[in-house]
Nucleic acid binder design. Structure first.
Lengths: 133, 133
DNA sequence: CAGCATCCAGCTTGATACTG
DNA sequence: CAGTATCAAGCTGGATGCTG
């Protein structure tokens, strides 16, 4: 097959991320998804309760936060600590793996944020050419 | 305001990623989106033509690849080099900024891939508890 | 080969209401 | 407080057909 010959030596992954069925794609989507990344970054700062998280991650709905947290917990990135008090108190904190993931994620976020001026400049150039037509 | 007092000193971003209106959220979504990440990783290996990319990124449709490339080009991460030949030949390659972003992204991908065993184990534990009910 | 335009099914999301 | 359940709406994305 052409494809595999073409790329075999360039590949650096144990699985093939590029393959549709790669198991890591799912986790990657949880991590980089709309709310997953922000949630991990928020929890990287410190442990938070449900509604604290909700306020921290601006724009997330109750439902989506709940869903996101379940996915991250299932993947072993977030630990849920519930206290059977009344009113209930539930703390969410990152696992060691979660912190490792969050660090790489933040490195990416910081890079992008730090170079938004380049991005914005590129956009203006792109739009200037496109907008003319 | 409680929220800002609570987090001001913990924040490490120049913009506030957590804010709904943060300009970097858009770029971040392009980078980490379903196809953006894979496209960047593929182009990090080497320059590719449109249909090479399409074969490399398993599962992407023509439309989505086109859309993804436009977004990345607009953000200044990808450079599009069109040769006015017949049949047309268009090469896509990363800009310096694109390579920087791709590197951080790959670091994240590699981490997740390398520790999928932990993730999978966590899932089994989670499902064992949940599935019982 | 390298795309764009259109259509539409279905998944994701947000709003709302309710529970323990 | 910490969620779950339900439902409508809108956006995403795949299929198809066409252009240069």
């Amino acid at each position: 097959m052409e494809t595999s010959q073409e790329f075999t030596q360039a590949r650096e992954f144990s699985y093939d991320v590029f393959a549709r069925a790669c198991p890591s794609r799912g986790t990657l989507e949880h991590v980089t998804g709309r709310w997953g990344g922000l949630t991990l970054c928020a929890l990287h700062e410190r442990t938070l309760r449900f509604n604290e998280l909700r306020r921290r991650v601006d724009g997330v709905s109750e439902k989506m936060l709940s869903q996101t947290l379940h996915a991250l917990e299932r993947d072993g990135l977030v630990h849920r600590e519930a206290q059977p008090t009344n009113p209930p108190r539930v703390d969410y904190e990152l696992t060691p793996l979660g912190h490792d993931v969050a660090e790489r994620l933040m490195s990416l976020v910081c890079l992008v944020e730090g170079r938004m001026d380049e991005v914005l400049a590129a956009r203006e150039r792109y739009d200037a050419v496109r907008g003319a037509r």
